[in-house]
Write a protein that binds this DNA or RNA. Structure first.
Lengths: 348, 348
DNA sequence: TCTTTTTACTAAAGCGTATTAGTAAATAAA
DNA sequence: TTTATTTACTAATACGCTTTAGTAAAAAGA
């Protein structure tokens, strides 16, 4: 079509529009091709192009979730945004796949083998060992995969799997140090996941324990409660803590949604945050500063996490060397009102 | 590959795997094909398939936003979830495209003409007239497009454009009626967008005005403030209202993010919600019940909106008749604590 | 002047599937 | 028994692009 209109061969059109190097096409011919393409509103057929090239221009973000669960998590939105921002500059598009690892465990393989995408970014927080093995097999076959965060139940990050993590060790340490520096000793932790459900939540609890240890505070099992991803379950967990004879004076919420629920429970109970009980969160959701009291939380750079994962993936796709297979980003404690830090400051 | 292994022709393989009707393939041959495909882990090449069929198995969700803006809106996440849930059952995948309507105004056309997708679902809240015209032209060419919500600045919904709306007239009316029934007369409205920026925000303000009118309350221009999509801008807007000599006794926040900001501003100012000032929101974000006080808000069924849009799109793609080109969903006022309704109840 | 190199292109094959038109063998109808 | 129909397949083309191998004409080198 374009070829006819410009009076050249299809080959020439392809060379011109793709700016293929090493082909001496005269300036004049090039202009003619561009003009013809412009006039016809030509857009190359994506499928034909992919078929001929053998590689797709798409990548997928794979979320491991039961697929009727709503991804209400801001976290995912942030990561996705980061990814889209980066890959679009190289002409890639992004699929969002919600994979129920129980019923569609071959989803990774489908995407890869069908050449639907050139690479995958995976949020594997609910995935099983079987899924991980599938991923590793694909990687061995040379298929690019980057993981964001730790794999669900696995204790170790597979060396082969490119990963972008957020250093929760550092984050939780900061939060705990902050609470301790404010004089708290009866610090309770509320996990966002059931006991043993994910490696990451267990890890955060572990850090909580070791921080207590370092400070010579005895770990008390009663002061650990488990929510179930929803804010309501966090309310319930907090209510259990409030029924203890020796109530905690501070709450380390393992994510912000839990912190929301905990604060709600505390105030419904008739106590005040931070005067009676201090609360810290983790994630840095964008409404955290606008709670009353504003939530002190560990701000994790999630957009950045998405961007870096996308960067890594593009490098893998283009067979460029990776600076590192495992990137760790530093979160930052943002001190606001929910721990009473500024209250103390003013008093002095 | 599969053909050789099963000892049949490529054609037969295609017929079997695609379950093509009217082809008499013996049960035995079918089993042989299935077995061979299974053993080889065969996954059809997506690009080749699309090329041969002439239609893609993908759709795109197009977000009109400056593409460096983070889509922190839960709203988008909900809609996306609904869409993915529905289309995946028919074997479709979903692209997420973030389109800056200023710099990439031909994005719709690219996707359609490149046959990258079989149809589009558009969230057009920031789109310009030019974009709308492009969409309408594509529709005229028979390309399936469904819009979620009203087109950015347009006053009318184009008849040709299939649309899934949420009836904000009904929603805002309920919220206003609730505030008025609680005795409020000095009701201020805070828009989530700058004056005149989007049709939807202006529409909500219009409903606010007409409700005042109906109740014989004089409209006071001073009682309208404008935020700029972020919670911080809502804080600023609220602070302006708090500086009025005659402070409002109730705030109609035009979305929940604004409500968050407004409540924060009120409490920072030293007043209480709902005792001094009542607040209603709009959207029903999932943290609304866990604010203190819990936010009374108009709950919009956004997942459902996504599902219905996906349904419509699939019908358009399959050239099935649409029951209606314009669907309107009813939101529902959820009464919680931020207006003092239960406070009054207890008093009596 | 004759040969080599460079310039500016093109013909044709190939990517992996869907699909149309067709065929040989088996069965049914006349 | 002959003809028509049905069953069970297959050969070959098309989809629209990329890319390899090649060619004719012009320029450079000997």
């Amino acid at each position: 079509m374009v070829a006819k209109r410009a009076g050249v061969s299809q080959t020439t059109v392809s060379f011109v529009l793709n700016k293929v190097e090493g082909q001496n096409i005269s300036e004049e011919t090039q202009q003619r091709v561009y003009k013809a393409a412009e006039e016809l509103g030509y857009v190359p057929d994506a499928a034909a192009r992919t078929l001929a090239r053998g590689v797709s221009d798409n990548i997928a973000l794979v979320l491991t979730q039961p697929h009727d669960a709503v991804f209400s998590d801001e976290y995912v939105a942030y990561v996705l945004t980061g990814i889209v921002q980066v890959v679009r500059e190289q002409g890639f598009r992004v699929f969002v796949e919600m994979v129920d690892t129980l019923t569609q465990s071959d989803a990774y393989t489908q995407l890869a083998k069908g050449k639907e995408v050139a690479g995958l970014i995976v949020l594997p927080y609910n995935s099983r060992k079987r899924d991980v093995n599938r991923m590793l097999k694909l990687i061995d076959d040379g298929f690019p995969i980057v993981s964001i965060g730790r794999v669900g139940t696995a204790t170790e990050i597979p060396e082969k799997l490119a990963t972008v993590l957020i250093d929760s060790l550092y984050g939780i340490q900061q939060a705990m140090a902050h609470l301790i520096s404010l004089g708290h000793e009866r610090i309770a932790a509320i996990s966002y996941a059931p006991e043993g459900a994910t490696h990451e939540s267990e890890r955060r609890l572990q850090i909580y324990k070791s921080m207590l240890d370092e400070e010579g505070i005895r770990f008390n099992k009663q002061l650990v409660a488990y929510a179930n991803y929803t804010p309501q379950s966090a309310v319930d967990a907090m209510n259990n803590l409030l029924e203890l004879e020796n109530k905690p004076t501070a709450i380390l919420a393992l994510n912000d949604v839990v912190a929301f629920g905990a604060m709600k429970a505390i105030e419904s109970y008739g106590l005040r945050v931070p005067e009676d009980i201090a609360v810290t969160g983790y994630d840095g959701i964008h409404l955290a500063p606008f709670l009353s009291p504003a939530l002190t939380t560990v701000d994790a750079p999630n957009v950045q996490q998405g961007r870096l994962a996308a960067d890594m993936l593009l490098n893998l796709i283009n067979s460029k060397p990776l600076a590192s297979r495992h990137i760790e980003l530093q979160p930052e404690l943002i001190i606001r009102e929910s721990c009473g830090y500024y209250l103390k400051q003013t008093k002095n």
